[in-house]
Simulated assay, not measured.
Amino acid sequence: MMSRPLLAGTAIALAWAAILAAPSVAVAQDEGGTKAAHELRADYDKSVKGKTIAYLPITLAAPIAAEWGRMIEEEAAWRGMKYVVRDPNFDSAAQLQALTALVNDKVDVLIVQNPSVTLLTKEMKRAEAQGTHVIQINMASNYKSDAFVGADWHEVGRLLADEVVSQCGTASGKSGKVQIVQGELTAAASVDQVGAMLDVFSKDKNIKVVSNQAANWDANTALNITATVIQQHPDLCASVGFWGIMESGAAQAIRNAGKIGEVKIYASGEGSQLDCDQINQGNFTRFLNYKSTEQGHDLVAAAVTLLETGVKSGTQHLAYFTMPVWVDKTNASGANCFALPKAK
Results as ranks from 00 to 15, higher is better:
A301S: 07
A335I: 12
F284M: 04
I19G: 00
S92T: 08
A188S: 10
V109R: 03
Q167K: 07
K329E: 08
T322R: 09
Y290E: 05
M246E: 15
N212K: 14
S239F: 06
I180G: 05
P23A: 09
W68V: 04
T170E: 07
D45W: 12
S172Y: 04
K342R: 06
C276R: 09
Q213I: 10
G241T: 05
D235V: 04
A187W: 07
N283T: 02
T59S: 15
T330P: 06
D105L: 01
N206A: 13
L318F: 11
T315S: 15
D298R: 09
T221M: 05
Q179F: 02
T309K: 15
A21Q: 03
T132C: 06
A302W: 05
F148Q: 02
M124S: 07
D105W: 03
T121D: 09
S292H: 13
T226Y: 02
A215L: 09
A66D: 06
Q167G: 07
F321S: 01
S145E: 10
A215W: 07
A222L: 10
V209D: 14
M81E: 13
A129L: 08
Q252W: 00
P324R: 02
H297F: 12
S141I: 03
L14I: 09
Y83W: 15
W243A: 15
F284H: 01
I254M: 02
G244F: 13
A18G: 12
D275I: 04
T132E: 04
N138P: 00
V325N: 02
V210K: 08
L299T: 10
G244E: 15
A227P: 01
S24G: 12
T121V: 15
A28S: 14
L307T: 11
R286T: 05
I279A: 10
Q167V: 00
K46P: 07
A13M: 10
G33R: 00
K177H: 09
A28H: 12
Q281G: 05
A301H: 03
A301V: 12
T305V: 05
A11Y: 00
D108A: 02
A219T: 01
N216M: 14
L159G: 08
M1G: 05
I245A: 14
K342D: 04
V210C: 08
I279C: 11
Y143H: 11
D105F: 04
I137T: 03
W326A: 09
A129V: 06
L56C: 03
V117N: 02
V27M: 12
A37R: 03
W326D: 02
R158K: 14
A332C: 11
L96E: 13
R126N: 13
K35P: 00
S313Q: 12
A98I: 09
H233E: 11
L306H: 06
T118D: 12
A129D: 15
S145V: 11
A250D: 03
S3I: 00
L96V: 09
A319I: 13
C337T: 10
